[in-house]
Amino acid sequence: MHVSPLAWIALTCAVVAAVIMLLYLVYRPPLDGKTKGFLALGLGVLPIMTALIGNVEGLRATEHQAFCGSCHTMDFHIADANDPDSMGLAAIHSRTKMFGDRSCYVCHKDYGMYGYTLTKLGGMGHVYYFLTDYAWEDAHESLPRVHIARPFRNDNCMQCHSTSGRIWNGVPDHQGLLEDLRAGQTSCASAGCHGYAHPFSKPPEDETEPAEARLDPGVKAPEGT
């Protein structure tokens, strides 16, 4: 358990506020200006500080694997991401410092203008599905049903892999599919290309089939993919 310096400040505010409230409850002093001043601190200023810092810390916590993994439905995904022997995309990326213990968030967040808010709203959707459905099953039962809400966007991959580098463009498949990849017509994380991010969660036939995870089902896969 790591508690940040900011969290210690919040905790100090909470403790002081709690002491003020407990003193009032125990001694019940007359309600003069001095008592009201202390109560304004204990019931207003200090708890508001705790809440504000708690929000910052709470939102920061939502970016860590520990938060995503606190739902049992994600047990296998987290275990695979942290497996040093796994060659899934999630595991390969989680081994790098930039992703590390924030790998779920770095890959799955929305990078658009309102990305932070949209990502949090998506997270609330996960909470809803968890409470209304998945919470009552064990991880083995829910594994075949867990799926991404919408196909994984290549835009997220392109935050790091710009698709403009010489080495990247030197790969023949990348060259042939450049426009499709940039437009999101062909998914980087598909069985025919780099494989699924969490391959253990797919049925065996999906792993070998050169399937295309297409965003637009109406568009056919280019040959050779």
Binding site: L25, L43, P47, G58, A61, F67, V127
Partner: peptide
């Protein structure tokens, strides 16, 4: 009543500072 509620609220908000699972964080916020 305000003090009792304040203590409960503070306890919930402080819980999330130590345990950053989804239940404490969402309860706090």
């Amino acid at each position: 009543v305000a003090c009792v509620l304040g203590l409960i609220g503070l306890a919930l908000m402080s819980w999330s500072l130590f345990d950053q699972g989804w239940i404490p964080v969402m309860m706090a916020m």
